[in-house]
Simulated assay, not measured.
Amino acid sequence: MNKTTFPDAPPGLRSPPFKGDARSDLKRERILRVAEALFSKQGYANTTMSQIVDKLGVSKPFVYYYFHNKQDIFETLSWRPTVECFSALEFDEDAALPAHLRVSKGLERLIRATIVNYPSAFFPYREPQVYRPEYRAAQKKMARHFYARLCALMEQGRQEGMLEFDETKITALAAGSLPGFLFYWYRPHGRLSSEAMVTELTKLSCRVIGLRIRKKTSKKA
C-alpha cells in the first residue's frame, strides 16, 4: 500500500503566513494553545476573539494576522489530531511488517494521537455542529480512507491466521471508534499515565480484532 499524505490545513483555510519561520510558528502556536484552553473550558459559543486576545495580552491585529476568526482557530486545532489519527495506518519504514502487526501498530498510533492531542482531539465529538460543511466532508473522506485501509489489512491478517473476527467492517468500526469514547471520561493526570492508558486501550482494541498472540515455547535443556 502506498502512503497517503493529507493537507496540513483544513479545506478553505489559508496556509500559515511565513510557514517554516521559527518566530512566526511560535507566535501562531501560542495563539492556538491559549484558544484551545478557552474552548475546552468554556465551549466554542462562549469563547470570543476578545477573550483570546485578552488572555494573550496582545492586540487584535496580532491574532487576525494569523487567523481570520475564531472558527479558523477552532478548525485548525481540530484538524491536527484528525490528520494524525486518520493517517495512523500510513507507514514509511514498516512496509515489510505482516498485516496483523500493521493493524495493531496502527490502532496504537490512533489511540496515542487521540490522547496526546487532548483536548482538541475531542472537539469534534463535543461540538460537531461548529464545523463548516467543507470541513466535515474532508473529515469524512479521511475517515473512509482510514477504514478502507484498516478493513483490507484486517482481512489480510485473517487470511494469514493472525486475526479472528466475523464481520470485517463492523469489527473495524468497533476497534477504530474506541478512542472516540474517551471524550466522555478521559482526563489527563489520572491514575494511569497517558502512556499506560495507550497500552491498556491498545490491548482492548487488539481483543476486538481477535489478535492471536503466539506464545513463545521454552527450549528444554
Rank of each mutant, 00 (worst) to 15 (best):
S87A: 14
T76M: 08
F39C: 02
G106V: 03
N46V: 00
Q139A: 10
F91D: 06
L150W: 07
T48Q: 06
A45V: 15
D92W: 04
R112F: 05
S78Q: 04
S87G: 12
V63A: 06
E108W: 01
P61G: 11
F74S: 00
A88W: 08
R144A: 14
E93I: 09
V116R: 14
S59G: 10
R149Y: 04
S59N: 12
A99C: 09
V116H: 11
L150N: 07
A88E: 06
R80F: 09
R28L: 12
R23T: 15
P119E: 11
E108T: 12
Y135D: 01
G106T: 05
K70Q: 09
A113C: 03
A121L: 06
D92K: 13
R109K: 15
A143M: 13
D94I: 08
D72L: 02
A99K: 06
K55L: 05
A99T: 08
A88Q: 08
L101T: 08
W79H: 05
H100D: 11
I52N: 03
E108M: 14
R149H: 12
I115F: 02
P128L: 10
I31H: 03
A45Q: 14
F123D: 05
R28W: 06
E127S: 10
R112C: 01
M142V: 06
L77V: 08
V83N: 08
Y147P: 01
P119N: 10
A143V: 11
F86D: 02
L56W: 02
Y125C: 11
A45K: 14
I31L: 11
K70D: 06
A113V: 05
R109F: 03
Q51E: 13
F62M: 11
T47D: 09
Y125A: 14
R102H: 07
P61R: 10
V63M: 01
E29Y: 13
R30P: 00
T82V: 09
Q139N: 07
E29V: 00
R23W: 08
V130W: 01
F62C: 01
T82M: 13
R149L: 13
K27D: 12
Q139D: 13
L97P: 01
A121T: 05
R102I: 07
P98I: 03
Y118D: 12
R109D: 07
D72R: 03
V63L: 03
S120Y: 03
R136H: 00
